[in-house]
Amino acid sequence: MVIKKVSIIGLGALGILFGNQFSKRLPRADLRIIADQDRIQRYQEDGVFCNGEHCDFNYVRPHEACEPADLLIIAVKFNGLADAIQAVKHHVGERTIILSLLNGITSEEIIGEAYGMDKVLYCVAQGMDAVKVENQLIYDHMGMICFGGNKTEKVNSLAEFFEQVEIPYEVDPDMLRRLWGKFMLNVGVNQTVSVFESNYGEVQVEGPARTMMISAMREVMALSEKVGVPLTEEDLDYWLRVLGTLSPDGKPSMAQDVEARRFSEVELFSGTVVKLGKRYDVPTPVNQELYHRIKSVEKQYTMA
């Protein structure tokens, strides 16, 4: 299988970052950004920029009939996933590979229920330090896309394609462990940076923020044992090293949401941890505190 046509839904930080890289290596017509008319109009009027460079994307509306994509990338926030699944239907064919760049540990199964798990490769985007403010994305490190599984033909085709378009990648045969590891990092970093109103730099050095972050991550480690994907100290050290490579001035999307007074993905992080803690009788006091503090901030949005 040769990947030629790529479709992306979601022009958040990752959609812009990888979309911009694809646009430099693919014919314009072969990269399609799926968006509704209102978004397309806004993108065209205001522009979309990546490290100061204007992104000349090819926009298509969800109802437009088209040739199915060889690779479909879903890069929306979790609260937009249901709508995105409906919006991409014309882009999914028998041989389409679907990657989810969403945070959390559930999006692949939700997409698989709609289009079949045979089309979905487990995937984790990691190591990027992108910051998006309105229509401007800035990043120092592109990071990489990790994927894998037992669908050998799809995995090999995707690896060859990423080589061609110069997207950093890693093939990991144990993607469930990788997925839970990234979830552990997100639970710690995204929420801690948000409640401390800081950046990666504050959790890269010893102090109250880093202590809270690691404590939240250890609660995920305890849960991972219960669900049969046990994370170890080695995994914790690995993800802390990944964190250490990020620009100290950068910050996760959740912190950017809180700054902009947008509702965050807290339910995806501490919300999920607290629920799983109750199900498996695992104490999660740090995540309960993070959940409470972020929800308290968001409550102010509706009172202003």
Score class of each variant (00 low, 15 high):
202 E>C: 09
242 V>P: 02
204 Q>E: 11
200 Y>T: 10
231 L>H: 10
239 W>V: 14
226 K>I: 02
240 L>N: 08
213 M>P: 04
219 E>P: 00
213 M>I: 13
232 T>N: 04
201 G>K: 06
256 Q>D: 05
196 F>C: 00
217 M>I: 02
218 R>G: 01
201 G>I: 01
215 S>C: 10
255 A>D: 12
207 G>N: 05
230 P>S: 03
234 E>Q: 15
221 M>R: 15
207 G>L: 08
250 G>D: 03
246 L>M: 12
251 K>L: 10
205 V>C: 00
224 S>T: 12
198 S>A: 14
209 A>R: 06
207 G>R: 07
256 Q>E: 11
212 M>I: 12
251 K>I: 03
255 A>H: 14
234 E>C: 01
225 E>I: 06
244 G>F: 01
220 V>P: 09
201 G>P: 15
216 A>S: 14
240 L>G: 00
245 T>F: 10
235 D>N: 15
219 E>Q: 07
227 V>G: 13
248 P>T: 04
210 R>L: 13
194 S>A: 13
198 S>T: 14
198 S>P: 06
214 I>E: 15
244 G>W: 00
229 V>I: 15
257 D>I: 07
194 S>R: 04
219 E>N: 08
255 A>E: 07
243 L>K: 06
207 G>H: 05
219 E>M: 09
217 M>K: 06
250 G>P: 14
229 V>Y: 07
246 L>V: 05
238 Y>N: 09
247 S>I: 07
233 E>C: 02
233 E>V: 00
223 L>R: 01
220 V>G: 02
197 E>G: 08
236 L>A: 06
229 V>T: 11
223 L>P: 04
238 Y>I: 05
244 G>D: 10
211 T>H: 09
233 E>M: 04
214 I>D: 03
215 S>N: 12
237 D>H: 13
212 M>W: 01
252 P>M: 02
245 T>M: 07
235 D>T: 13
201 G>T: 04
247 S>M: 02
253 S>H: 12
239 W>T: 04
214 I>Q: 10
203 V>L: 13
245 T>G: 01
248 P>L: 04
249 D>V: 09
201 G>R: 09
208 P>G: 02
230 P>H: 06
196 F>D: 11
233 E>N: 15
203 V>K: 10
211 T>I: 05
240 L>F: 09
254 M>N: 05
223 L>D: 08
211 T>L: 13
203 V>S: 14
202 E>W: 00
199 N>P: 00
253 S>C: 02
237 D>N: 15
249 D>P: 00
229 V>S: 11
194 S>H: 04
246 L>P: 11
